[in-house]
Nucleic acid binder design. Structure first.
Lengths: 197, 197
DNA sequence: ATATTTTGCTAACAACCGTTAGCGCTTTAC
DNA sequence: GTAAAGCGCTAACGGTTGTTAGCAAAATAT
């Protein structure tokens, strides 16, 4: 067929990973075959294995790349000297931006992590759980300070994060408002729902 | 192996459908095999075909059963003589209750409908799109009446529905608050985020 | 120019998939 | 009591899956 085209500084492996993210998003991890992936890359299936070890490796690269992005950002937010509400807003805006700009990978990480193999599966779940606990702690601090209404912090986190994953529907819709507008609308509703009234 | 046990008035087919919903939820439609389903039912794979036509039939029974439940409820809400905010609350409470009580099927309908075969796929998407438009119209009416803040109605619907699908995480969590409590918390945050402030 | 590494190809593998055919036992209907 | 229908079994099918072996060509390094 031909060689894998590489632009910029992206390696051939990076190209495969991005195509895999797109394919996994569209069909789901299990339903996506290596032969389909190969076709979208412009190569025969066997040739992929010169660059990657397995199908599973593709999934765990995607999942951990995304998870690490969010964990790193949480470090920054936690360290910042701002109010709880502002921290929550920072976190939400980051989630929304990632979902708007890089949504294939974020979407796959969100929906397909179940198909990770051990020990990656357990590691991923742990990292996710830790992230949510840190998020919940920030909300809890806001409740204690009186700026956030008295709610179950874990439930609030769950609502926020899943609401954001709904941006997938926005991507698919025809008559969509622009990304910045979407961000403001979501912040308005979600932060508005948290505030003491 | 033995016969399929049936309690109450549930047919053998109903038993298979419920087991299928549980299995599809846990592994995903594609990753779930008919041999696994058979095992969880207590029968050999081939025996399933005395009761169902195909694997795909199981998925579309589940998806449309759930979708019809919501469509029927929307008919009732639309007909009721209450304010927009109250209608939204009714809809949300119904979604939450379905997700808490019957979540295998609701979850599968939410996440696995992509694997429906035509023409069911298109029908399902249409039904879903119509439902969301009706939901958005109610919100739009609330905005016009001044009880709901000026937001993009479609975005609000998207947030609400996806937030509710997060109840799946609640089911999986260990230290969970009870179902009624969860419902009140979610309503508080979501309705609070809509209200004019 | 030569040697080495990288990359892609064809062919094939073992495993698993959904599904069907055909046979016997058990339950139900008359 | 006998006929019909319901239900589960074993065996097997054609197809698809992820992956490997082995070889040729192209790119890179010396």
């Amino acid at each position: 067929m031909g060689r894998i085209q590489v632009d910029n500084k992206a390696s051939r492996k990076d190209v495969i990973i991005q195509k895999a993210a797109t394919l996994f998003k569209e069909k789901g991890y299990q339903a996506a075959s290596m032969r389909e992936l190969a076709e979208s890359v412009g190569v025969e299936a066997a040739s992929l294995y010169n660059h990657i070890h397995s199908k599973t490796e593709l999934l765990h690269i995607i999942c951990f790349h995304v998870a690490n992005t969010f964990t790193d950002h949480m470090d920054i937010v936690e360290a910042s000297k701002t109010s709880a509400i502002e921290k929550v807003e920072q976190l939400l805006r980051f989630h929304i931006k990632r979902m708007v700009q890089d949504y294939e990978q974020v979407y796959v990480s969100d929906r397909e992590w179940k198909h990770l193999a051990e020990p990656y599966l357990s590691n991923f779940q742990n990292q996710r759980r830790t992230y949510r606990k840190r998020f919940a702690s920030i909300i809890q601090a806001g409740i204690k300070a009186g700026s956030i209404k008295k709610i179950d912090a874990a439930t609030a986190v769950l609502i926020m994060l899943h609401a954001i994953s709904g941006i997938e529907s926005w991507h698919r819709s025809k008559a969509k408002i622009n990304g910045k507008e979407l961000e403001e609308q979501m912040i308005s509703i979600l932060i508005g729902g948290l505030k003491q009234s």
